[in-house]
Nucleic acid binder design. Structure first.
Lengths: 222, 222
DNA sequence: TAGATTGTTAATCGATTAACAATC
DNA sequence: TAGATTGTTAATCGATTAACAATC
């Protein structure tokens, strides 16, 4: 039924597509009509051939000697990533990070709409953050089920994350975007996407030490 | 001088180490003394052999039939990732996300100490967030240089990110943790670690569609 | 001793990069 | 036509997984 197959698309490609999109927005804003692989490659620091492969997924043909039509490419990415429609999500944990995500207007253009927040803190329950109600956590499961919400966002402290995840699963939520630095135990078939800042930090720190230390010498050799 | 070489450590391994550490904290709290690869493998959803390879980096030997000493492993990870000392960092953009990061106490145990925040909004300048001063952005470069701060955290809107990055580079900052969904253009040798939520979201959404759609059939076949 | 777990080497798999043909 | 860029196939590279030896 659909030409585009799901599994075969490499995750790295998937991660690069939003970045190409962001560049296209910029370049279209500057009046660009045609864009080349080389231009993407330079901006994103990836091989031009890789860019061609990534763009091939979209089914938007380029023209030799000219490049790719910038507008078509933008639309192609939006369609490919499903940004024309949004998935509704519940968020648990209206702390600083949760509030940041609730206030982030740009999710709406990127396929995600957080429609409500859930909390255990009575101080926060009943409030309104960026037009979204903060409700008691006990109501999450029943409401998720009734509203057919499929995505849950976890921004509670690590110690509470597993309990929240259980509630989400109980409510029929299928995918969890987990910002707590903790390994969630969920039934098979439930998708967990970890956004682990400590992992990123480990990579950053290592690259920093490598850049100033041993690896710096290797670089000189070139 | 140092047995541990920098470059050869795979990034995926680096990303898993903090997760093992988190599990060790839990298990040590429950009184565990010895832990097996299989246990990590199950919790993190990775192959046991992979866990052994990851742990091999630490130089903490396991004992056949018994496992690895949990306490030594924890210390080993902390030492390996350099969590015994911290790198000072400046943060630019004291919005919701920036505030969340400034308030996040656990960075201190993970090698990062955000020591000050920078802003252009006069409303926010002069405030104090979790004991850290919010200073005018103009001061960032000079202060970074004077204090030998090597890490910058960007939590400003996408449109301001490049300017902030330029300031950081001007101040001698070597590594940038970029939360703005934008490709930064920096001189060679400056490390940029992108924390792109839209990329993660693209992966999450795709996995969700795949889980309910075509790929579900494939799974049945097993 | 038997058996379970670590440690290591080989095989597989998938993404990236290189080579080159096709095309405007 | 010549030359630049896309598109595609082959080679390389690196991480994961499998096989198996070592050890307590």
């Amino acid at each position: 039924m659909d030409e585009r197959r799901f599994h075969p698309i490499p995750e790295p490609t998937l991660r690069r597509l939003p970045r190409y999109h962001q560049l296209l927005e910029e370049w279209l804003g500057e009046g660009a009509e045609w864009v080349s692989c080389a231009r993407f490659a330079e901006a994103v620091d990836v091989d031009p051939t890789q860019v061609r492969k990534d763009l091939a997924c979209l089914g938007v043909p380029g023209r030799p000697r000219v490049g790719y039509p910038a507008g078509d490419l933008r639309v192609g990415i939006e369609r490919f990533l499903g940004w024309n429609h949004t998935n509704e999500a519940f968020l648990a944990g209206a702390g600083h990070l949760g509030t940041a995500l609730l206030n982030y207007a740009r999710f709406a253009d990127h396929g995600l709409e957080i429609v409500a927040a859930f909390e255990t803190d009575p101080e926060k329950i009943g409030r309104d953050i960026n037009g979204k109600q903060v409700l008691p956590l006990e109501k999450l499961a029943a409401l998720a089920r009734r509203m057919h919400v499929r995505i849950g966002v976890i921004t509670v402290p690590a110690a509470a994350a597993q309990f929240v995840a259980d509630q989400m699963v109980a409510g029929g939520i299928r995918a969890i975007w987990n910002f707590a630095p903790t390994a969630l135990d969920v039934p098979e078939g439930i998708i967990v996407q970890d956004e682990d800042l400590f992992s990123s930090l480990a990579v950053l720190s290592r690259r920093l030490e490598a850049g100033t230390g041993i690896a710096a010498k290797e670089r000189e050799a070139e």
